[in-house]
């Protein structure tokens, strides 16, 4: 589904992503974890071919997203961390517009219903609440029944129920063969959804493996603690900051 070997991205002299490699099979879910600025979104942009990068191998569904952009994105969906819409665009129009870009699409009404947006069809997207807009962004990423989907901070801004509903949907689609690359700051979510995680720190891979490996190889009891250890955000440092402030 996805092959990335030694992908690096630099902004001027700063290396944002440093030789990241991973593979993803059908129906697999990988979580890219890391602090803000660790390079998660940059890595995704590089993998999608929209950010200049160097790599030894980069294929989505067996093809280069740069040389075969139009074929690749017929079967790949993307939800960016920030999703902007033109002024005055309604929910219905956003769906129609997106659906028109693909050869085949899912049942849009069913999706609207599932994502709790039924009844909002004629509302301007920019007047939706943050959570509703986020749900619309995920909906649009799934509108063409992709085989591979990128979800960057998929549940940021969602309430508990919406989060659980989205997890359930994704797990069903995963079972049906959907492969997912996601980023998240919520470790409960990562544990529910991800088969594997890749932890980035300053653009470098500090851990790659299954969730249970991540916990096992660290000396910590939970994924959240293990993640903090790997990403170098030790709680001891926070005590220092806290003491310093008080």
């Amino acid at each position: 589904m996805l092959n990335v070997r030694n992908l690096s991205i630099s902004y001027g002299s700063k290396t944002a992503v440093d030789r990241v490699s991973f593979e993803l099979g059908q129906g697999e879910v990988i979580g890219l974890l890391g602090a803000n600025g660790a390079g998660k979104s940059s890595a995704i942009a590089g993998i999608l071919g929209i950010q200049k990068s160097t790599f030894e191998e980069l294929t989505l569904l067996g093809r280069s997203p740069i040389a075969h952009r139009r074929e690749v994105f017929q079967q790949v969906g993307v939800q960016f961390q920030e999703t902007n819409f033109p002024d005055r665009l309604t929910v219905q129009e956003a769906c129609l517009q997106w659906a028109s870009l693909y050869r085949e699409t899912a049942d849009v009404n069913e999706l609207l219903h599932y994502f709790g947006l039924a009844g909002h069809e004629n509302q301007a997207v920019n007047s939706l609440s943050g959570g509703e807009r986020q749900r619309l962004a995920v909906l649009l990423a799934l509108i063409h029944n992709p085989k591979l989907v990128f979800l960057d901070e998929l549940t940021t801004g969602l309430d508990t129920k919406a989060r659980r509903l989205l997890w359930r949907r994704l797990l069903t689609m995963k079972k049906a063969g959907l492969s997912i690359v996601l980023t998240s700051h919520y470790m409960d979510e990562v544990e529910v959804l991800c088969d594997r995680v890749l932890i980035l720190k300053h653009g470098q891979t500090v851990f790659q493996g299954t969730v249970s490996d991540a916990i096992g190889t660290s000396s910590k009891p939970t994924l959240e603690d293990a993640y903090l250890e790997y990403s170098g955000e030790r709680e001891e440092d926070w005590d220092e900051i806290a003491n310093h402030v008080s």
Binding site: I50, V78, F80, L101, Y102
Partner: peptide
């Protein structure tokens, strides 16, 4: 304006020409 607001960026990861 669409480029500035990253609306074109969303279109870039679709099959649209």
């Amino acid at each position: 304006d669409y480029r500035h607001r990253q609306i074109l960026k969303r279109f870039q990861v679709t099959p649209v020409s």
